[in-house]
Design a protein around this nucleic acid. Structure first.
Lengths: 159, 159
DNA sequence: GTATATGCAAAGAATTTGCACTATG
DNA sequence: CATAGTGCAAATTCTTTGCATATAC
């Protein structure tokens, strides 16, 4: 909580982004170590501070942040995009019992090299699935059997 | 093409799945090395053999196959689930220019261990993003800037 | 004042669900 | 006939798009 709003506004300005009130609190929410929120989560959390905040603004702002490298979008949960305040390259762990997505402070060495089989590597994405420490201890079991599903998109999307 | 329909039916039976005509041709299509098809691709391709084949059947069948371990679902493309005939654990490469998803015959050593930070690892997922060899040679550039998007889902989905 | 940001409402699309029909033994 | 598989149609909901309004420099 030391990093106040002014700090965030500075971050935005440094990225060439006009630091509006909405953008400031959105960045704050994604960077705050509150897991890896989806748009739905962010909206629920932020309407308290900004009652008129729309999902449209959330979508466009988060896309902007991702494009500028301030945050990263995670496609681990097939049901919705999750966002990551990313300090640097790292992996993730998705618990099939509690549904949380945790940061894993390792980066696969394999991906470090800039080229594999002749392909130029720009991004490395890695995540694990299983039961987190807490759920193991509590004896919880996976909810949905590890059978993936997706959601419904649009036309663009190619990333 | 050597592995005929009887072979596929045997695979299905071995997995405890009743080998209907639809299931047979669906498995054939996913295993056939035609990239990593989405439901849309499979439907377009298979209606030629089975004009009444519905997307509903595709969805339920693919989920069944994934649950039984015959195939794997890939969530790399935020716009739609892709399916993989999977021979074993491997990574993937998504080209941001041509949109193809290629198999990468490596498996991150980090993920092999059954436990990380106390979490039990059941699945390891890794993929790279960049420009594939062909697109590099052809001088093609990324389509959408590496800004992710998703699609629209349902309520379940937790895997 | 002009460009940019925000937001409401409506559209778009992958995926799911309900139910009726068909096939199999 | 009873069980399981298939498919049409309707529903669901994330994400996008089109303006209209509000804000910022």
């Amino acid at each position: 909580m030391i990093s106040n709003r002014d700090d965030l506004r500075r971050q935005l300005a440094a990225a060439g982004i006009k630091p509006t009130f909405q953008r400031t609190i959105i960045l704050e929410a994604v960077q705050g170590r509150n897991g890896h929120p989806a748009v739905r989560d962010l909206h629920q959390r932020l309407v308290r501070d900004a009652p008129t905040l729309s999902k449209t603004t959330l979508y466009s702002t988060l896309e902007l942040f991702a494009r500028k490298g301030l945050i990263a979008a995670l496609y681990i949960d097939p049901a919705e995009v999750r966002f990551d305040g990313l300090p640097g390259p790292h992996h993730h762990f998705a618990c099939t019992a509690c549904g949380r997505i945790l940061d894993i402070d390792i980066a696969c060495a394999t991906g470090q090299c800039g080229r594999i089989h002749g392909h130029r590597i720009d991004e490395v994405h890695g995540y694990f699935k299983g039961l987190c420490r807490d759920c193991l201890a509590a004896g919880r079991v996976p909810r949905a059997p590890s059978v993936p599903r997706h959601k419904s998109p649009r036309r663009k999307s190619h990333a």
